[in-house]
Amino acid sequence: MNRVFARQLSLLLITLFLLSVFTFSLSYWFPGNPVTNSSGVSTEHPLFTEIAEARGFQSHIGHQYIAYLQHLFQGDWGLSLQDNTPIWQEFKLRFPATLELAILAMAFALLFGPPLGFIAAIYHRRFADHVITSFSLSGYSIPVFWLAQLSILVFALVLGWVPIAGQINPLFDIVPVTGSIFIDIFLSDSPYRAAALLNALQHMLLPMLVLASTPLVLLTRLTRSAAIDVLKQKYVKGAYARGLSRSEVFFRHVMPNAMQPVLRQMGSAFNLLITNVLIIELIFSWPGIGSWLVRSIFERDYPVIQGGLFILATLILFANIMMNLVHAWRYPQVRQEFYAS
């Protein structure tokens, strides 16, 4: 396990290194002055030469890269070309908002995806299976921007169940301290925290469900096919032959074995989710990294693009390595269980 850990960690470090080289070189690839592209300070600014110097632009490219890393780790991500505000300040408030939405959606997908897959596998080629399969197939093919818009029309406009924009009704006047609305409500001294929490939940519901939909159906499909494979195995028959009850067979043999290939694909589910975050945040005016990145591309706000890309890619790489680790950690144990019975 230690070897696996070391190997995954080095993998993470190498990919992060490459990513940082890539985001660094973006300053050169974007149109315009590389100093402006990385710092957000225009060439006419009185402090331009000093800033260029601080970022190593008077020196060779290696030096520039080191300076880039230094700035990155110091939280000096430059200024937005759009309004000259520090990117790091904005990022600090937006990242937790994205993370909150993504984690809840992922949790929702994990909570409902695999169980649906198991149900489909257990009732293989029967009614429940057909319903779940067609639901997951269509859910997998539905463009998320269309789904979001349809759900806004149905649940917000026609039925009037949920609000459609932002994290909370701004009249609650919750001061954004962390950016995560639930934590901010908890930290605020508002006498109406319970009402604010309910309001925030209402705002969260629709984006979270739409965001969860794609990873959810992916997990359902993966679990279903994995469980069908496992159910065909001889050890399952053997378990029944030894007189184990259906639930015992399911929980002790089928489920752990079927979850193994599902776990391997968990990273893909998360990647899908992050792809969709870009679009969902825009549609639901969620003040997170995704909508920020997409808008900065419109606005050609290069320092923001660099920061947004770096953080989203880091999040994905980190999540994938974590999933690999969890998988590697679970794998021998699953095998042990298998041998033990």
């Binding site: 993998l11 993470l12 990919t15 490459l18 973006l26 690839w29 974007f30 149109p31 990273g267 893909s268 990647n271 899908l272 992050i274 792809t275 870009l278 990145l293 997409v294 591309i297 050609r300 290069y302 693009i305 890309l309 989203l312 890619a313 994905i316 790489l317 994938n320 390595i321 690999n324």
Partner: peptide, 18 residues
């Protein structure tokens, strides 16, 4: 494998930005 886990839409967005 890890490197390709970065979603294609994200990469395409960056290329479009360039």
């Amino acid at each position: 494998d890890v490197l390709f886990s970065i979603p294609s839409l994200l990469l395409a967005l960056i290329i479009v930005a360039i």
